[in-house]
């Protein structure tokens, strides 16, 4: 007991002279689950992006001599039906999946935050117009839209770019709504009125006073979004409408399991991407939870 109080006293002392950000960082560093998850995610990211330095096997070359080999010393995770090394494809696939997830998250958060903060800050007619537009976008049937658009643009533009743009254009609505509601609540504080009275321009009020105070929500939201968007990419690729088949991604690798023979008898072909995908998504969600706790002034974990 004594120890506990002493410890909490110490932590109380330490929070003096710390910005709210420093306090959140400390809380996050103490969250074991979140730290393990961050470590895992970071490892996955680093290994994926260093793939060319880790394996030398060709990811696209079909090798009839080595079709559907079981895991062995030569091929750690075996080979798929075209004779390509599963481990190599897993690394390169991770690169694509994570890249799509990150790019989409960045675009979605950027666009959602801009729309949401302008709507929330100005209110009135601006708010109504922007939020009706958001509703309109949110009402698009996601899958149908992605399939149609990628069918239209296929061949004209790089398939990966189209996928990123299309997913982003359809997914920012949720972020816009959340940011708007947060801004609406935050702008009632007197310090916003004060920032107007000391001569801040509206853009400065939004960027310097409102956004830093809703940033924690945006960050938490974007981690959860990141996980969701990786899943979206995998789902689309599994169905064959996502990343072009020539580029390996976790979703593309999973689509091999559409064949019942592979699903039932050759687990080494689809299990690795499935497992790594699941653990990655889980760890991203744990990180999100950890951040949420860290930013919540009432939690003391």
């Amino acid at each position: 007991m004594v120890n506990v109080t002493a410890d909490s006293n110490k932590s109380q002392e330490k929070t003096i002279n710390m910005s709210p950000w420093a306090i959140a960082r400390r809380k996050f560093l103490r969250n074991k689950l979140a730290m393990i998850s961050s470590f895992f995610l970071l490892t996955v990211i680093i290994i994926s992006f260093l793939a060319p330095f880790i394996t030398t096997a060709d990811i696209s070359k079909v090798n009839i001599m080595q079709m559907t080999l079981e895991p062995s010393g030569d091929h750690w995770l075996g080979t798929d039906k075209s004779g390509r090394d599963v481990f190599t494809r897993l690394l390169y696939g991770g690169r694509v999946s994570l890249l799509v997830g990150m790019a989409c998250t960045a675009l979605v958060v950027l666009f959602g935050t801009i729309v949401g903060s302008i709507a929330g800050f100005y209110g009135g007619i601006v708010d109504s117009a922007l939020m009706r537009f958001t509703d309109f976008v949110l009402n698009f049937p996601f899958l149908v839209f992605v399939i149609v658009l990628s069918a239209i643009f296929r061949g004209y533009v790089d398939g990966l770019t189209i996928l990123i743009v299309v997913i982003s254009l359809l997914s920012w609505g949720g972020v816009a709504r959340i940011v708007r509601s947060k801004i609406l609540a935050e702008k009632e504080n007197e310090y916003i009125l004060a920032s107007v009275s000391i001569g801040c321009k509206p853009s400065k009020v939004i960027i310097k006073h409102l956004l830093p105070n809703v940033l924690s929500t945006i960050i938490v939201q974007s981690t959860i979004l990141f996980a969701g968007l990786i899943v979206a990419e995998s789902g689309l690729s599994y169905l064959g409408f996502g990343v072009p088949q020539t580029i390996p991604s976790w979703g593309n690798m999973l689509s091999a399991s559409q064949e019942s023979d592979v699903l039932a008898n050759k687990p080494w072909i689809w299990m690795p991407p499935a497992i790594i995908l699941t653990i990655t998504i889980l760890s991203i969600n744990f990180i999100g939870e950890g951040l949420k706790d860290a930013f919540n002034p009432k939690s003391n974990r």
């Binding site: 709210p20 504080n189 310090y191 004060a194 001569g199 830093p212």
Partner: peptide, 18 residues
């Protein structure tokens, strides 16, 4: 606005916490 300023009622809500 340079020439007229305000002191607010709530000392907790009128300062930006960040």
């Amino acid at each position: 606005r340079q020439d007229f300023q305000m002191v607010f009622q709530d000392p907790y809500a009128s300062l930006n916490p960040t």
